[in-house]
Design a protein around this nucleic acid. Structure first.
Lengths: 85, 85
DNA sequence: ATCTATGGTCAACTTTTTCTGACTAATTGA
DNA sequence: TCAATTAGTCAGAAAAAGTTGACCATAGAT
């Protein structure tokens, strides 16, 4: 579990995901110091571990959204408590 | 926070610490596949992050005990919940 | 005095993780 | 048609984490 969420960028991705769906290039711009490769593998791992859902949005600019899955949302309140300690 | 508890051996150390004070060589024997160096730096980091207290026991066989600090004990119930997800 | 147990440290090496730069491929706008 | 935005992949380099084996110092038992 800790292993699934550990990594240099996963915590930040997780935090941002709480505020709504994420898009690849938006993350790349908002998370300072990161890079495509790391971001891509972090996102893939979070999807594989079922914390995030990856959805292709077939609209105006065809794009992809990463949003918290049910499992992902379940972990949020616990994390918030951990952060208060 | 996740960073402070991530590492190959820290989760196991933490789990064992819940059952009572830990001793260096005992850990080295009970955690399979580990080694002095990794154990030493994991313990030091956990002490630095104040999850563990390091206490020198001045008794029969003078030794050192690592036990959960208040902060460490506070995290335990949250971890138990996380593991149920 | 020597051996064992305590709890380490140190330098060098290996493995894993992260970063960099080049490249791809589909879609959209001018 | 050309350029930009979307979302990546790939190979190699660099950095971080983990492992190994040698060594050290104290204390207790033989």
């Amino acid at each position: 579990m800790l292993k699934q969420l550990s990594g240099k960028w996963k915590p930040q991705i997780f935090r941002l995901a709480v505020n709504g769906p994420l898009r690849f290039n938006a993350l790349l711009r908002t998370i300072e110091g990161t890079n495509k490769q790391s971001l891509a593998s972090s996102l893939n791992e979070l999807v594989k571990a079922e914390y995030l859902d990856k959805v292709v949005i077939r609209q105006k600019p065809l794009h992809i959204e990463y949003s918290l899955s049910e499992k992902g949302r379940a972990v949020v309140p616990l994390f918030m408590q951990l952060e208060l300690l």
